[in-house]
Design a protein around this nucleic acid. Structure first.
Length: 519
RNA sequence: GGUGCUAUCGUCUAGUGGCCUAGGACAACGGCCUCUCACGCCGUAAACCCCGGUUCGAGUCCGGGUAGCACUACCA
């Protein structure tokens, strides 16, 4: 019998959602959708000391922005967090009673034991003995229910002594983990330590226990997570067995890591700050440490570009296709086309993806996105609100320039001269394009433009080109000088597209101004 | 240190024993287009970590090195 595909993304609310985590969420989502299964979101907040306020909202909002839909568990709807599904609660901190029962099961069956060693004692032990590990070799020398009389253990527990419950790993066993991406991975249980499963100090389980219990109870069929979990996968297998859940144990798939673009190591928040690109989907204001992290959304990225870019970092399609919509990704996704090796984060390619998706958006849509940026620049330039451009004009100008930008905010550098007349002229352009004859040419051009019967591109082109031909002037010389008058530099879209937006009056004014100001 | 994972152009990758004089994409470089700058188009350069073995034949399989990464917490 085929089991219903149910996968989960289970982040910790310890800060902004890392871009690698986003990719993990994406692959889970793609896998679920492709198989007509469910995508769950569970919050793993078993470490009360690392909780960061707002992180949960952030995670859910980021997924919503990216279009990674959640079928069950926690999700964002119209700015509100909602919980859906029959397997709740979906925050581990709200599942204490559930875990109690399973901790007890393990204790009763002899798969776990109570340990009283304090963090300080353990630290001292590690300092004293190199490579100390709490395991079959050492557990009999420690303060735990294996070495102490039952009454003594009971007395300490009843007396409120802080303790932890540790998993009793049986030695000398080869544990096999079948990984969907890497195949068979075998690890001997001797290298595993007796992991802490539960801590009485905050009455919460650790990741390992909560994770197995929840995945089982939530009927998860596939665990798709980062490679950093591969070393603990054997422990998880052992836990499933200890609980007697081996036959419904989910299948594992460990994803390759996202690496630093330069040098070595895992991509981190620091790399983003250092190299100047975001490593988080959304901007995040960390209330706990006061830091602000930049986000893809705020940097002008389109969600579909981020998705496409991330999808191809560590996975490839069945053919040469690089541009994928979410639906196409769902159709083509396959775990066996996920790479085994880590992928260096290539920010340059991310830009290219954004460029591609930017071209697909309508001018009106882009104008809408660009408007706040534009307003700010116009304010800085001292343009009165009464002289702000029409939305239609902005859209038109974007249509002329969008193919040369990667991000919406960059539109300003390409379009500023449409909205603000040049006050200075680019020196390089002047040197190369403003010749001795240019003032005379521009004076003549001014007279011609003043007398044109209509201001459309075709008429202007006919008249001006005719005049240049008559006088045997160089087209390049005249047109570039004209361009400098209007733009302030030798750049920009076609000249008649510029005059069209500027209008007759403004065009003539700029030529006159240039005649006065360029020496 | 221990354990595990990984190893093709600068980067992301294709490649599952002959189709590989190793393919695509980003970036780089050159050309075309052109009143300019871009875009676009066309093209160039650029890689199988090393050593053995198996085989008629290895980027592809095996072994050993080497390197990188991850894990090694009362964090996830």
């Amino acid at each position: 019998m085929e089991r219903r595909v149910r996968v989960r993304f289970a982040p910790s609310p310890t800060g902004a959602l890392h871009i690698g985590g986003v990719r993990t969420a994406l692959y889970n989502y793609l896998f679920a959708r492709q198989h007509g299964g469910d995508m769950l979101l569970r919050i793993e907040d078993t470490d009360s000391t690392r909780f960061v306020p707002g992180a949960e909202e952030y995670i859910l909002e980021a997924l919503e922005w990216l279009g990674i839909g959640i079928d069950e568990g926690l999700r964002m709807r119209n700015g509100q967090i909602e919980a859906v599904g029959e397997h709740g609660p979906y925050r581990q901190s709200e599942r204490r009673e559930i875990y109690h029962q399973y901790v007890k099961q393990l204790l009763d069956s002899g798969h776990a034991y109570i340990a009283f060693d304090t963090p300080e004692e353990l630290e001292a032990k590690r300092a004293e003995i190199p490579n100390f590990q709490y395991d079959a070799r050492t557990r009999m020398q420690m303060r735990n229910s294996l070495t102490m009389p039952a009454e003594e253990v009971q007395r300490l527990v009843d007396g409120g002594e802080k303790y932890v419950v540790r998993f009793k790993v049986e030695p000398d066993e080869d544990v096999h983990v079948h990984d969907l991406i890497r195949g068979e991975v075998v690890i001997n249980s001797n290298i595993l330590d007796d992991k802490v499963l539960y801590k009485s100090a905050d009455d919460l389980p650790t990741y390992h226990l909560a994770n197995i219990v929840d995945d089982h109870l939530m009927e998860i069929s596939h665990v798709i997570r980062g490679e950093e979990w591969l070393p603990s996968a054997p422990l998880h297998v052992l836990l499933y067995r200890a609980f007697g859940w081996a036959d419904t144990m989910p299948q594992f798939a460990h994803l390759p890591l996202l690496l630093k673009p330069d040098g070595n190591g895992k991509l981190s928040k620091r790399d983003g700050d250092r190299l100047g690109f975001p490593v988080f989907p959304l901007e995040f204001h960390n209330q706990k440490d006061g830091t602000v992290s930049s986000g893809y959304r705020e940097s002008g990225y389109l969600p579909e570009a981020v998705i496409n870019f991330l999808a191809l970092l560590g996975w490839h399609g069945s053919g040469d296709q690089e541009l994928y919509t979410m639906d196409e990704l769902i159709k083509d996704f396959s775990l066996d086309r996920v790479s085994k090796s880590g992928a260096k984060f290539d920010y340059e390619k991310g830009k290219w993806f954004n460029h591609q998706y930017l071209q697909l958006r309508s001018n009106e849509e882009l104008a809408q996105m660009f408007w706040p940026v534009l307003e700010e620049h116009l304010r800085d330039a001292g343009i009165p609100v009464s002289r702000y451009p029409e939305k239609e004009t902005v859209a038109k100008v974007i249509g002329l320039t969008k193919d040369r930008v990667n991000f919406v905010p960059e539109l300003w550098e390409q379009t500023n001269f449409f909205f603000v007349a040049p006050t200075e002229y680019d020196e390089k352009s002047l040197k190369k394009r403003w010749k001795e004859d240019s003032p005379r040419h521009m004076t003549e051009l001014l007279a011609i433009l003043e007398g044109v019967p209509s201001w459309d591109a075709e008429t202007l082109d006919g008249i001006v080109m005719g005049w240049i031909a008559d006088k045997e002037y160089g087209v390049g010389i005249v047109m570039n000088a004209f361009r400098i008058c209007l733009v302030g530099a030798a750049r920009g879209p076609h000249i008649w597209a510029i005059t069209d937006v500027l209008g007759k009056e403004e065009t003539l004014a700029r030529v006159r101004a240039a005649l006065n100001n360029i020496h």
